[in-house]
């Protein structure tokens, strides 16, 4: 025989209990959600691929389309400074160490030494070039050269092209 007296105190307790239950429930809910659908996936090993597919762009056009496109449209892409020049080989056996974020002192300065020196004189010694220079897409100059329209047009001559 259970008797629950609906006193004010009991109701308050019940409400508190319900509130705690709700908070715990919502907490558990999000805990579960984050567990089942992680926001970020652990980056796994790089694809171990046979030699003929290591031209990075072939795959990365698909798996990191944004980055590849930024590269392609920016100066480094137009002048064909390819991924491996700055990032090295994923297996670490290339002529420079593999770096997802290239070290400016080691990599950028190989070509842009005068600019690095100039910038340091202006803004002091900063380890991070990237806070101003978005590394793939140069925000100011992206698309500066681009006039070529992707085409499969195959007529011998293309009147109206350009200009």
């Amino acid at each position: 025989m259970i008797t629950i007296s609906l006193t004010k105190k009991n109701m308050l307790l019940g409400a508190c209990g319900l509130f705690i239950l709700a908070v715990v429930g919502i907490g558990l809910f999000f805990l579960y959600l984050n567990f089942a659908f992680p926001v970020k996936h652990a980056t796994g090993t790089h694809l171990a691929v046979p030699d003929q597919y290591t031209d990075c762009v072939t795959c990365h056009t698909k798996v990191s389309a944004q980055v590849t496109q930024d590269w392609r449209e920016a100066k480094h892409g137009v002048t064909l400074v390819k991924c491996v020049v700055c990032h090295g080989e994923p297996d670490g056996k290339g002529s420079i160490p593999f770096m997802a974020t290239p070290d400016p002192k080691l990599i950028c300065s190989r070509c842009h030494d005068p600019a690095v020196v100039r910038m340091e004189a202006k803004y002091g010694n900063s380890a991070d070039c990237y806070s101003c220079h978005a590394y793939h897409q140069n925000p100011v100059h992206s698309n500066a050269y681009e006039t070529r329209v992707p085409t499969t047009q195959t007529t011998l001559d293309q009147p109206g092209q350009g200009f």
Binding site: H41, A42, T43, G44, T45, H46, L47, A48, V63
Partner: peptide, 8 residues
């Protein structure tokens, strides 16, 4: 195969 990528 050849090391998992853990990507969806």
């Amino acid at each position: 195969k050849d090391g998992k990528s853990y990507r969806l």
